[in-house]
Design a protein around this nucleic acid. Sequence first.
DNA 1: AAAATCAATTAACTATATATTCAATAAAAA
DNA 2: TTTTTATTGAATATATAGTTAATTGATTTT
Lengths: 222, 222
Amino acid sequence: MNVLIVDDEKSIVKGLKHSLEQQGYNVFAAYNGAEALEYLEKNIIDFIILDLMLPDTDGMMLCKRIRQKFDIPILMLSAKDGDYDKILGFEFGADDYMTKPFNTLELIARMKAIIRRTDRKSDDKSIVRDDLVINRNERKVYLRGEEVKLTAKEFDVLYLLASNPGRVFTREDIYSMVWKEEAYDVRTIDVHIKNIRDKIEDKNHHKYIMTKWGVGYYFNKN
Amino acid sequence: MNVLIVDDEKSIVKGLKHSLEQQGYNVFAAYNGAEALEYLEKNIIDFIILDLMLPDTDGMMLCKRIRQKFDIPILMLSAKDGDYDKILGFEFGADDYMTKPFNTLELIARMKAIIRRTDRKSDDKSIVRDDLVINRNERKVYLRGEEVKLTAKEFDVLYLLASNPGRVFTREDIYSMVWKEEAYDVRTIDVHIKNIRDKIEDKNHHKYIMTKWGVGYYFNKN
DNA sequence: AAAATCAATTAACTATATATTCAATAAAAA
DNA sequence: TTTTTATTGAATATATAGTTAATTGATTTT
């Protein structure tokens, strides 16, 4: 379990790092926002402890940016009391919040609680629909028992649609959710859809991916 | 959104109840563990605020029992500091924890954050009016249970009107909101309105889309 | 390091669903 | 009644989706 601490106060980082390592976590540190983002791009991080006050960026903005791109739980630290609604509210998407000075034991307890909570849903949930089984952890798809090899993008697109059956996604929706950036040419989705269909559908069996004309695509509910 | 407060201190219950009701929550109270369990059996509760010290049961045990039976988020309150690890840890399954005395605003912020986290996908916004159901995510319209197929533009126009019943929209309003550009010929709207009416209205049943002569159209409120 | 493989994107073309326009008719307001 | 506004159906135009192939980029193999 890899934890990233983002804080410019070296003493805090040092103390926390020590306590967390005693508990068996691998701890990494970043001393400003830019470092943090770079670190996240290059490493697999499971949990972030983020200070509100950083030398280069506003912690809340950083929190928001991290959330847009990564699905990693964040516990925010702040020196002053009273910002709970902003931090915990809908805008920035932190998972928990503590004020400095904090009790290290409580921080670790809160961290564990969040990890447990987010873990609950990430355990082996396969999506099953008729002849199709989509396994998220293994990133494998089975059609009538046979494995179907999808590419990374194909899998992500199919998984997005299949995990919200019936819900219509525009091409822009799909692009921003899967690619996590804004789309230049959104027709690339069409080609991916076609390739997925070629792999999981044929005329004898019913369709999984449906077209909503003028809007986008959705996964068949029936 | 129904919140159950489980606490034997009447003053706390009263204060919290007041604050939560101001925020639009429906608040229920139980003054001991037995009452709480009974309440949960008989009512639909979305969130529980649970005090650790109760006259009849130990709060942690109650938390554990609730968790075994219901999947409702729990925020625990305790008088003494220092039990975080037990409360937030794996054993009892609380989602969050605060010590008394607490800041009500922070409590509400934490509550909202937990609800948001557990809720993320349940934003299925449907408009229901008499025999008509308009599902926004699926972009589907049902009339007396039967699906009515609308084109993308038709759906957008209907959704716009139906999400503001009674409000009169000029053709220009509708055009700019749905097409997101300025209209050359707003008679286009007339044709779309006609086509929508053809699909969702007939002389036996009442009208959904009303004409405001000389102005535009609006969705029937009654 | 070069070649080969595979995935992703872009481009061009075809097919098809939908939107718009127009002109005749009907209905409502003055 | 006159005038203005709304409704309607059909034709035409436009927009969108599906398909195939070519290109680019990334990764693996030789």
